[in-house]
Design a protein around this nucleic acid. Structure first.
Lengths: 214, 214
DNA sequence: GTGCTTGGATAGTGGCACTCCCCAAAGAAA
DNA sequence: TTTCTTTGGGGAGTGCCACTATCCAAGCAC
């Protein structure tokens, strides 16, 4: 199929597809001659994935490129590729290491991992963007006078661990059917907005149950 | 305290504080004379809240203003104010109602609420931005060939309901100590990034347990 | 009075995600 | 063959956003 048809079937304008091609998010089509390129179903699928990451996952274009680069890197084993892709997802900016609230939160979050017995996460903590995000969020709450320390977060962490188990169970069940790490990234990137939405809905439901609709 | 000190103590530049004042995020200080305004601890606290929402919660400035407007609206009861504030939080754009994937997902998500017995959420579904987000995310997955229907989401939803119960338990425990709805919004806005970070950490941990670090 | 600081206003900056426009080469029509 | 339309590539432009830099006049400190 040509650019126009790719645009038609994906609902993405030709100008935007060209932009993605230029930015290296989408591989170039098979060049038929100087003015025509041929795209296939794989291009359409990848384009839909890119759109989902950008529109639903709110991931910046540069980050999408980075994530896809890791996903496509055949030189690494699948699990490593997936890990690299997830670590590339956008996180909060680097915190100020001298800030007292940041230091206190960092200590509290290390304690949290110890309490949970997440030994692998502990050994990765200093590198993990997710750990950094956790520290930054906890520091912001601390700065406002709230102590979201280890003990308050333990029940949240246990619930999120159950969520992670569901994620991985699903991935295992589908690895055989599609060997592409793309499938895994998809699960990681698109499940998050669903979790967020379910969280809000659950809050609405529980709030209505407790206090009525008024 | 004057602008310079407010800047000093919050770590936010005077130029940025002036911008927030201009945008109506921060109430003006008490005007002492034509060139001096006096700010108090409440201004400092509000400024820290704004920064946390923008930097940690990644909420756009216009949305922060909207959320704070609801929070400060004394004409409504507290629960309604909180609900309005949460509904103002950024969500995905309106989906194309004619899209077959969107229609299928909407039906599946309505079925999900039925299965869960979330009757209040059901009655609010057509209005709730969270429900819309859920539909959009499910539609994106559907478009890529994955069926995240009601039965696959039920376990996720039950876990997020437990999270919501924790949230509300915490809020109830703190309502007496601070009557401001600000406290509640804070919980909603800043807990989300923590959940996200915990989710990632849990994935890293569980993935390392199952497959090793390689 | 002189010089520095302050707060308010206006305009400018840089990044991002497109989006517009032009062009030369194909392919289709006459 | 000639004319007309379409196509893909590329560069420049757009609109939005979150600041940020500059200017200005009024105060205050010495």
């Amino acid at each position: 199929m040509r650019l126009a048809e790719l645009s038609e079937r994906s609902g993405v304008s030709t100008a935007t597809i060209k932009y993605y091609l230029r930015e290296g998010l989408l591989a170039p089509g098979r060049q038929v001659n100087t003015t025509t390129s041929e795209y296939d179903e794989e291009h359409l699928r990848r384009l839909r994935l890119i759109r989902a990451m950008i529109q639903v996952g709110r991931i910046p274009v540069a980050t999408v490129r980075e994530v896809l680069t890791h996903v496509d890197d055949d030189s690494l084993p699948r699990t490593v590729r997936l890990g690299a892709a997830v670590w590339a997802l956008p996180q909060v900016p680097e915190p100020d290491a001298d800030d007292e609230f940041v230091q206190g939160s960092r200590a509290a979050m290390e304690e949290l991992l110890g309490t949970l017995g997440w030994t692998h996460a502990q050994s990765l903590a200093s590198l993990s963007p997710a750990f950094r995000s956790l520290v930054v969020a906890a520091a912001a709450l601390r700065r406002l006078g709230y102590d979201w320390g280890a003990e308050r977060l333990v029940p949240y962490a246990r619930l999120m661990h159950q969520v992670a188990e569901l994620d991985l169970d699903f991935m295992e069940a589908h690895v055989s059917e599609a060997e592409k790490a793309e499938v895994a990234v998809l699960g990681v990137v698109l499940v998050e907005p669903m979790l967020r939405a379910l969280h809000h809905l659950a809050q609405e439901e529980e709030s209505a149950r407790r206090y009525g609709l008024e």
